[in-house]
Nucleic acid binder design. Structure first.
Lengths: 202, 202, 202, 202
DNA sequence: AATGAATGAGTCTTCATTCAT
DNA sequence: GATGAATGAAGACTCATTCAT
């Protein structure tokens, strides 16, 4: 039987989720920098103050949005596994880049935090935890592809390379969204092949 | 004999350089986002208005700082060439990552523009020009390393991968600067080897 | 019993009024163009930000000041009515010109908006509404004076003529305030007679 | 034989005219407030400094543009005279309003000076002189129309009324330029008739 | 006399965060 | 716990005017 405290806790989680989803929705719609607290509050149907009841500051909320995105990617990758066989390395790259192309927020936030977003110790740890989770999938895929040595480092390199593709080419001026998607996908395939080559040579 | 116009032009270049250096200095010292026009003006020893005489807006100045950085990298790479043999692929990665580690501004600016800095057509073109120049060096190095097919795309992939390493790990929370430098360098070596492997297999 | 929402609304109105009065006071004291947000905020005893909580931008505040002025004129005119008989045409001109002479802001704002102050759709409509109200009084007076045809257009012509007197002679250089008041009043009487003549001839 | 001093003086006048025409051209093209010294200088093909050699400040230049406009109106009116008979009162109103509709600058400047443009004693006098010239034409027309008493004051009233029409209705929001022209012309006709009525009754 | 780069005070506006209710 | 109005520091940018060349 659930105690009162437990119910309260559930309510709290629910409301927190409301805010989170509203933020994610807004980030999906528009530029990262143009989303304001006021707007998030309005979209979530709560007051500004409430947001600060659940999040110490905006950056903490951003972390949650980021984490949620990372989870979605993890789930997308898990959905690709056949039994306990992870998806192919090529497929992983494809899925990851496709997600990033559809969720600009994701790497925009990476950039934001890199540009000096300050995080609480706790948020940093949650961030690390989910990143590790994501990286675990990359490691599995890499191993399944036949890479044996320095798998963690290699996974980090692959992860970096994919992020780098988006950072470097996702807002290439004068190119249509479709062209960008095609180009980033192409680069992702090239990168995937690079790592596969590595696997074969071992 | 230098005409008057020529002298004026030189003076103009000089003053523009003054502003540029001041901005670069400030960016090196502190966070990209916390640098203000007022501060740049004071550091350069000119008035705020003067900055706007030389640059339409701050982003145009940022582009110049960025370009200057890119030029420095190009020069560093050119200094590594032996006759007409470009430096090794490994060395290129090392030099590039080292420079980025010492000039956070550089990829902070990449991020800034990615997050929606608006540029004039002219600035965009200058930006593209220097990026192409940099990429040309990467292409040369890649070719010298023995890669034959899709060299431009491969160069882009390498360039992306190196940027991605910095974006993903340059501000890793809880790590010392030294640790970060070591780790990014290590990832860069791994990436370099990946591309070399590719070369051998052709 | 007043609900909480109602009280809140009243408070809001009150504060908005505070800002409005402060602005009006400043406009009365000094030149329209030299009034700043900072000053209005200080005079109203609120922060700058608060002003922007109540008004989207300064021009919207200006509209409110303008509207308040128009209302005052309407009230002055209504106070002149005897039962349901509007005041005489001559009296209307006299009252209007006298008010304008004491509230330079009023036609300075007309000019400001004419010189390109940008207004929201909503503000434009409020502006139109109060102008129509004012014009309605003019129409009534004109009709009471015996003018039968094209009363609305005639009212507009009278309204224009009175405004024109102020625009053309209210800041006539080298004349004392008193001289200006006498002269504009004289012109207003002449204009009034013109319209009365018109009435008689019908 | 023209002395050197005289030639110099002519050159000076010519250059001053160049600046004047450039300013007038710009004012005709765009909003009064958005014209800058830099732009005038560029359009006139002279330097900013040169403008200040010919005009103490911008407002003095504006006065000249204004005067030039007033002269054009005077010439238009004079062109309408038959022998020594001035044009009809109705025609005067029509011509004046038409000119104002095509030269927004003209009454925008009236407003500008009214909003506190500071003028030198000399500029004020030149301004008065040309205004008097313009008013003289109005007086003539009024007299020719049969008005005998207080002709100067009546002319001022007519002048004011026409200005007022433009001030009040020239930027009426939500109306096309054509509609505005039609409406102001209509009001001008009404005003003209008012004054004619007055003439007849004398 | 002509030049035009330098000046800088002063402008409006933004928006994350606080805190009294 | 929820609210949302108040806060105000901080930002980029403008542009008439000056003055050394």
């Amino acid at each position: 039987m659930a105690g009162l405290a437990e119910i309260k806790q559930q309510e709290r989680e629910a409301r927190r989720g409301l805010i989170l989803v509203a933020a994610q929705k807004l980030f999906a719609e528009k530029d990262f920098k143009s989303v304001t607290v006021r707007e998030i509050a309005r979209t979530a149907g709560v007051s500004i103050g409430t947001i600060y009841n659940y999040y110490e500051n905006l950056d903490e909320l951003f972390v949650d949005v980021f984490i949620r995105g990372a989870r979605e990617i993890v789930e997308l990758l898990d959905a690709e596994t056949q039994g306990d066989r992870p998806c192919s390395l090529a497929r992983l790259c494809e899925v990851y880049i496709a997600y990033l192309n559809e969720n600009m927020t994701f790497y925009q936030m990476m950039s934001h935090f890199m540009l000096g977003g300050r995080l609480s110790e706790e948020a940093t740890q949650r961030l690390n935890r989910v990143t590790r989770e994501l990286l675990d999938r990359v490691v599995s895929t890499i191993e399944a592809a036949g890479i044996r040595s320095e798998t963690r480092l290699t996974a980090q390199a692959l992860f970096s390379a994919l992020n780098g593709i988006m950072i470097s080419y996702a807002t290439y001026p004068g190119r249509s969204l479709e062209e960008i998607q095609r180009h980033t996908a192409r680069l992702a395939r090239l990168v995937a092949n690079l790592f596969l080559q590595q696997a074969k040579s071992q």
